[in-house]
């Protein structure tokens, strides 16, 4: 394969990207020089101990911060250009408190091309239907007119996921999106996310603490070391998709997650 063709296939590429906050004596290395490549349509999970720089990588890809050294390419171009359509679910649901859930979820359609061009005509029609369908899919159908403070933490995280997906992004970045949910809801949403992923095949980068979540959803799992973080293991999950939720209780799956667990325990020490 030629270089040009391989560049086109790449959705995200970190080339020796590092992040250092502060200067001089107070400088803190949040991310050691890191290489990471996601091909188009990849579903990659990033796991590791707290504060290892997982979220930093997401912030680099979304260009909320710039690398102190190295480069971050998205869709083959500098991340700052925001060449690909991105959807991000932050760790905190960060719903805008003055908007209803429906208006919050609709926000990307107001901002992102090509939707923004027809926002005025479609917000009461096609866009609204789209938002309602998505909210219905995560069990929030009856709450579209509510304000964020009227919803529980788990419900807000579901709305958060909807907002990340509503504009059909090429690149989906998820920062522990299921953290505040109970186990049943979480497994339910894993399946929803899997369906949505297989349906539209965006490139997904998922940051999580939950090894079962990573194993169930991702095609590749990258393990990061403790701070200053770097990627110490990058493994393919040898299971065909779609996966049934029962998969996570099979011996092979448990063994795999146990190995990852041991690896993380080791780097934490």
């Amino acid at each position: 394969m030629t270089d040009a063709a391989s560049t086109r296939r790449k959705a995200v590429e970190l080339q020796q990207a590092s992040v250092i906050f502060g200067i001089g004596d107070k400088a803190v290395t949040a991310l050691s020089p890191t290489n990471l490549t996601l091909d188009k349509g990849d579903f990659v999970a990033l796991v590791g101990p707290s504060g290892c720089g997982k979220s930093t990588i997401l912030r680099l890809v979304t260009s909320l911060i710039t690398p102190s050294s190295g480069a971050v390419l998205v869709g083959g171009r500098d991340a700052a250009i925001r060449h690909l359509r991105m959807g991000m679910a932050f760790q905190n649901p960060t719903m805008l408190p003055w908007l209803t859930i429906e208006q919050n979820v609709m926000m990307p359609l107001k901002i992102v091309k090509p939707f923004k061009q027809s926002y005025r005509q479609d917000r009461k029609g096609a866009f609204r239907d789209r938002v309602h369908a998505l909210l219905g899919q995560v069990g929030l159908g009856d709450f579209s007119g509510h304000f964020p403070w009227q919803l529980s933490g788990g419900m807000l995280q579901r709305a958060n996921l909807c907002r990340a997906l509503v504009h059909d992004p090429d690149l989906l970045l998820l920062d522990e999106p299921f953290g505040a949910l109970d186990q049943f809801t979480r497994e339910e949403l894993w399946q929803t996310l899997q369906e949505l992923y297989l349906d539209r095949k965006p490139t997904v980068l998922l940051v999580t603490h939950d090894l079962r979540e990573a194993g169930f959803l991702a095609q590749r799992i990258c393990v990061m070391s403790a701070r200053p973080g770097r990627i110490i293991s990058d493994e393919v999950v040898p299971l065909a998709q779609p996966r049934a939720i029962e998969t996570i209780y099979t011996p092979e799956f448990v063994e795999k997650t146990q190995n990852l667990r041991a690896l993380i325990a080791q780097v934490r020490a």
């Binding site: 805008l96 926000m107 901002i111």
Partner: peptide
Amino acid sequence: DLEDVLKTLGASKSEILWNVGLP
């Protein structure tokens, strides 16, 4: 955090002002 939501969507400064800052 609230501004970041719009920044990741590639919103311009004025869009952030209208949709987040002013409200």
